[in-house]
Amino acid sequence: MQINIDQTSKLAMLKIDKSKYEQLQNKLTSILKSVDEMPRMTEDLKVLDADNPMELREDIPIDDKDRLSRDELLSNAPQVQAGCLVVPKIVE
């Protein structure tokens, strides 16, 4: 199978330079070909590590002292105004 670079790059929110299409196509097609040639082992996918599952923590807030402040959380944002993230207008 071949990857449609136009369609897939749209799904991935990427713009790919047309000059790189052929090289990308070759590289990705060769990986897909290896998978095409692989046998399909079974149809049943078991839960990995079923006898030793993940332990989720209680869904309760962490202590105040360990909590990041709003300012800390926003400290890396490209654009902030009045404590909010700024993005381009989405309603015309």
Partner: peptide
């Protein structure tokens, strides 16, 4: 791109799911 394709409706069964079976 490869990952987006492998998880898309077109690629999921033949690539992602098949790879997960092989991983098993």
């Amino acid at each position: 791109l490869l990952g987006t394709f492998a998880l898309s409706a077109q690629g999921y069964n033949d690539y992602y799911y098949k790879a997960k079976l092989m991983q098993q």
